[in-house]
Design a protein around this nucleic acid. Structure first.
Lengths: 124, 124
DNA sequence: TGTGCAACATACTTTTTGGTAGGTTATGGA
DNA sequence: TCCATAACCTACCAAAAAGTATGTTGCACA
């Protein structure tokens, strides 16, 4: 459990994994897709994800350089964690807040599910 | 998802919730049960859990004081997150490490499951 | 009179994490 | 000749989280 948490803890890691769940992407694509994240953070956190065996990097020896990232098999299995976190989280937000008042989320919650070797978005 | 993560992120929160999954406990019991955690951390993190609506506190006006903590209904539903994190984590640890080598955990992994309104430990 | 108890609080320091601003590489096009 | 490009790295700085040490309360018991 501690291992699982240490793998996904990091301000941008879930966003990065989320991007890669829809398939192989290159550095600049991920960078553009996640607003607010700096390049330093992207390379730092994706490097940690690589060291943890969650993502794999494919370097093309070209100039200008090209690097593509994808999830490893065990990285893809993280989608179950995504699913559980989102389900509990959306339930939590519809049920109560700190003052015991009932609040409702003002955005759509979705989750990623694997169907026939495809990852699809499903609203919860 | 961010909400779920913010609720459980904190070095000792999962351990505290883990303690309370087996029933109502008082401050000193939790403190003794989690080695390495200081009293400051316990009161700080359990206060945050209370503010998030995960645990409830019952104060007995006695001297010396007595305070008992228990999980709220939505706090008990966190067990699904426990289950998923542990399952993925133990799978992760038996499958690979950073170098792609196969490693084995040198300790027993267990998970908490709800059966007939009872929370039981199950080895994975 | 003084010591211990439980459940904290408070001030301070250390560690960890994240952010800012710059530099690097080789090459193709203006 | 000069500049833009992609994917980084490095040094430095700020903020957040965690750890250490000590103080507080009011009563029971020695």
């Amino acid at each position: 459990m501690a291992a699982a948490l240490s793998v996904i803890s990091g301000k941008w890691k879930l966003s990065i994994i989320n991007q890669l769940l829809s398939g192989q992407k290159r550095y600049s694509e991920i960078n553009r897709a996640i607003p607010g994240m700096t390049e330093k953070m992207l390379s730092q956190q994706i490097r940690e994800l690589e060291e943890d065996g969650i993502v794999s990097r494919h370097i093309f020896p070209e100039v200008p350089p090209r690097v593509e990232y994808s999830l490893t098999p065990i990285g893809e299995e993280l989608s179950s964690i995504f699913y559980t976190l989102e389900r509990w989280g959306s339930h939590y937000m519809t049920v109560t807040n700190a003052n015991g008042e009932v609040i409702k989320p003002d955005y759509t919650c979705y989750t990623l599910v694997k169907q026939d070797d495809e990852v699809v978005k499903v609203e919860v």
